[in-house]
Simulated scan of single mutants.
Amino acid sequence: MSDVDLRKLRYFVAVAEHLHFGRAAEQLFIAQPVLSRQIRALEEELGAQLFARDRRGTALTAAGEQLLIEAKPLLAAAEALQRRVVRAAAGADTFTIGFMPGLIVTGAVRALTERYPGLTVELVRTDWFDQTEVVHDGRVDVSLVRLPIDPHGLTVRPLYTEPRVVVLPADHRLAGKDAVSIADLADEHLLQDPDLVPEWRAVATELRTDRPVAPAFRSVEEKLEHVAGGHGIIFLPLSVMTFYTRPDIAYIPVPDLAPNEVSLAWSANRPVRHAEEFAALAAQ
């Protein structure tokens, strides 16, 4: 069997994610016939059919589904390797940290640079969708993450917990309360993945089983705009909400909601200089 071409793997992932050769070709900025030939060449190299195509569309075969699982971390690792080599060639002693909204890393960064005056620390803002992706693809050395995350391929060190609050429109019936319970909020429309708030999901499901699917907002700012517009509620860690304070929304403590867990994550597949030391500093 010949070595797998990473370029062909990237082409495969694009088709697998779109399940449409035309749209994948547009994303990759190549002609569709070229893409089709590259996928056929990959299938020949692997000795397996990756896609089933008929009048109804394109679907992954069992082999294609397995390759998609394997290809994404492989491509991320290749990208991370390239970034590390480029940084090493530049001769710079750098340490790059990813951090979620509301998480303040200033104290730990200052402590680390005091210990290593020649160290350059760079910061990358992340969100729920890429807080671990930036570790896998090498954009950061470590990432301050909010659980839950997929720990596969990662070393994860717990740092601390913080309370979560419910975010409501300023004119909501509960906006003036000192605290509310999950039961008080069970009939509200949640504007985030219910799996992130299992306490609410358990109570809300008992009351209503035909709830609309939560929209896929990609940023805190989008969620807050929809809350302010009266479209629903969200739950956020307290530090995030205080960072985004605005007059048309209110945030209320929810004592029976589990706190958010903050951890530090880095690659489990290679040594990461300063990771353990920074984790100890960030936990203080």
Rank of each mutant, 00 (worst) to 15 (best):
L123A: 12
A24S: 10
K223W: 00
P148Q: 07
T58D: 07
V240L: 08
K223C: 13
P271M: 00
K8C: 04
D248R: 04
D130T: 11
L238H: 13
A80W: 00
A268F: 04
L224V: 06
E79Y: 01
D141C: 07
L257I: 05
R125T: 13
R55G: 04
A228Q: 03
I69M: 04
M1K: 15
E44I: 03
V254L: 07
V134Q: 08
W266H: 03
F217I: 05
L168E: 12
L81F: 04
V140Y: 10
G176N: 12
L112Y: 12
R37M: 08
A214S: 15
S267I: 05
Y11R: 11
H152Y: 11
E221W: 01
E26C: 01
L147K: 14
P255L: 05
D248Q: 06
A183Q: 15
E79S: 13
F21P: 08
E162W: 07
M100V: 02
L6M: 11
D141F: 04
G138V: 02
L168M: 11
F51T: 09
G64Y: 02
L19I: 12
E79V: 00
E133T: 14
L81H: 15
V220C: 06
E221P: 01
Y11E: 10
V197A: 12
H226V: 07
A41V: 08
T209L: 14
L42C: 04
V203A: 15
V227L: 05
E65L: 05
R218D: 13
L264H: 03
A92G: 02
D150K: 09
P259L: 08
E65F: 02
M241A: 15
L147C: 10
V167D: 08
T106M: 06
E206T: 12
Q38A: 09
L147P: 01
L119P: 10
F51N: 08
L119W: 09
T132M: 07
A282I: 02
D5V: 02
T242M: 10
L46D: 10
L191Y: 11
N260I: 02
